[in-house]
């Protein structure tokens, strides 16, 4: 009996060792880490930036809480200043697991979800309502600011998802084709197709892999020319079905 217990214990240890080997992780390469930093970067709008920044500085508990600007200060902002405020300050706390750990080969993947860039904060109801109520202006400001800064930051891409900015699909493709560097723009196209339930995309293998039953927030497809072309073609086809 003792012999049997000993053998069982050894087999158990060997089994665990084998499982441990299956969980091999590598440190992300420098190019992967650099791309991770790049895709998390925000675009800071220029509209009334100094005034908005000063008012954000007045918000109490800023270090320990994601808090809103006072209603009085908020109401004093112009539409463009409000846009700047929402793009650089999120008003409520994000939950504990919202921050994703570093990812291997980040630069070689097209993810199902975009980097959010805001870490421990998210937009409040008031902020989302503003963007939706003023979606035409928000889209125009995003285009103007993107052309000016030569890139579309994580915050702008998130805002486009919030307002379901599918009218921007040709522009998103145009921005992507300028340097083909920001694969989250391809993710943005896929999110717009997914959120609008575009059937040819939802029936695709990519959809199943990125958003299917076993997908998670780090699900990805490989970054290659074929996947890139396919996403752009599908998004263009989708846009052609919805444009007026």
């Amino acid at each position: 009996m003792k012999y049997l217990m000993f053998v069982t214990a050894i087999l158990g240890c060997l089994h665990l060792s084998a499982q441990e080997q299956g969980a091999e992780w590598r440190a992300p390469s420098n190019s992967s880490k650099a791309y991770g930093t790049y895709r998390n970067k925000l675009t800071v709008p220029p509209y009334g930036l100094a005034r908005v920044t000063a008012l954000i500085g007045k918000i109490p508990y800023a270090e320990d809480d994601s808090s809103p600007m006072s209603n009085k200060d908020y109401m004093s902002l112009s539409l463009r200043e409000k846009f700047t405020y929402h793009m650089i300050h999120m008003e409520i706390n994000a939950q504990n697991c919202d921050v994703r750990p570093p990812i291997q080969d980040e630069d070689k993947k097209i993810f199902g979800m975009m980097a959010d860039g805001f870490s421990e904060s998210v937009w409040s109801d008031r902020q989302v309502k503003f963007m939706i109520s003023n979606r035409d202006s928000v889209m125009a400001l995003i285009k103007e600011s993107t052309d000016r800064s030569k890139r579309m930051g994580a915050n702008y891409k998130m805002a486009i998802v919030e307002i379901n900015g599918r009218e921007l699909i040709p522009y998103i493709i145009e921005v992507y084709n300028r340097d083909k560097k920001d694969r989250d723009l391809l993710t943005l196209l896929m999110l717009l197709m997914k959120n609008n339930e575009y059937r040819p995309f939802m029936e695709s293998q990519s959809f199943r892999k990125l958003y299917g039953a076993d997908a998670n927030y780090q699900s990805y497809i490989d970054y290659n020319k074929a996947n890139e072309d396919l996403i752009i073609k599908r998004a263009t086809d989708y846009y052609n079905t919805v444009r007026k």
């Binding site: 939950q95 697991c97 870490s119 421990e120 904060s121």
Partner: peptide, 12 residues
Amino acid sequence: GSVKRGASFSNL
């Protein structure tokens, strides 16, 4: 996970 120290969630 990471969270702000003043945050209160019903899963924390």
